[in-house]
Design a protein around this nucleic acid. Structure first.
Length: 256
DNA sequence: ATGGCGGCTCGCAGCCGA
């Protein structure tokens, strides 16, 4: 089973890239972030013709998360239970015995801002929720845009980024706390090329110069990690005209 | 130090992202 996460930065604008990518890569499950559209505007027909079931937790202008899957998606939940949040950042469902969670962690804007406090509160609520999910199932996959570069090697220029949002110690602590409920970063199960990133700023020709961060992740419970055969970033869509600023991340799971 | 790019909106400038 090939599973993936992609922050598309507007599903409407990126639909041609997404459809082309689905056909080329042939994933079984795709978690989307920043769809930026209401549920009624979700491109259902195009996604279904491409061969996917889907669930969407949408919102106008900001946020919005979805799951696409080759097989039906059941037991769908929206948002973090008990965490009243008007921002649409989480959706979960069961796909072929795997609890799949599509997450869009808040950006945090700047250290010390209200949005930073919201990010940390959101991550704390997510941790508590994932603790429950992992308690219920040994097969949980959390995929999405975490807006955290876990280590300095996930940052093109750690000195320039030091103390900034996305790399701050409190955010990294919060990321490690997610792992501590019983999850592993699938990317680090394998030898990886140096300077592998998943996001590059639109400005300063950052992609061409590989000035990026690795902030999109696929977290797996131990049982799924044992089945993981590969984990990578697919840079190809970032090279296209009018790309998302994020590239998809992919993990391959062997059959149970 | 700032803004740079791109997407969005009851747009024509400002907000937000990362």
């Amino acid at each position: 089973m090939k599973i993936a996460a992609w922050n598309v930065n507007s599903l409407k604008v990126r639909l041609p890239h997404l459809l082309e990518w689905l056909a080329r890569v042939a994933p079984d499950v795709v978690c989307l972030q920043e769809t930026k559209c209401e549920d009624v505007k979700f491109p259902a027909a195009e996604i279904e013709v491409a061969g996917f079931h889907w669930v969407h937790e949408g919102q106008k202008t900001y946020n919005g998360v979805a799951i696409l899957a080759r097989t039906p998606i059941s037991n769908v939940t929206r948002g973090i239970p008990g965490f009243g949040d008007p921002q649409k950042r989480l959706i979960a469902g069961d796909v072929e015995g795997v609890r799949v969670i599509s997450a869009y962690v808040p950006n945090g804007q700047s250290i010390g801002s209200d949005k930073y406090a919201y990010k940390l509160a959101w991550l704390e609520a997510l941790r508590n929720h994932l603790h429950e999910e992992v308690g219920r199932s040994a097969r949980v996959a959390v995929l999405g845009d975490f807006n955290i570069a876990p280590e300095d090697r996930d940052v093109h220029d750690p000195k320039a980024w030091q103390g900034q949002v996305l790399v701050s110690e409190k955010e990294r602590e919060a990321f490690r706390a997610l792992l501590a409920v019983g999850l592993v970063d699938s990317f680090r199960l394998f030898e990886q090329p140096q300077e592998t990133f998943s996001w590059w700023d639109y400005r300063q020709a950052a992609f061409r110069r590989n000035m990026g961060l690795r902030i999109d992740h696929i977290l797996l419970t131990r049982e799924l990690a044992a089945r993981c055969a590969a984990s990578c970033v697919d840079r190809e869509p970032r090279k296209l005209e009018r790309p998302s600023d994020h590239a998809p991340v992919i993990a391959e799971l062997r059959p149970a």
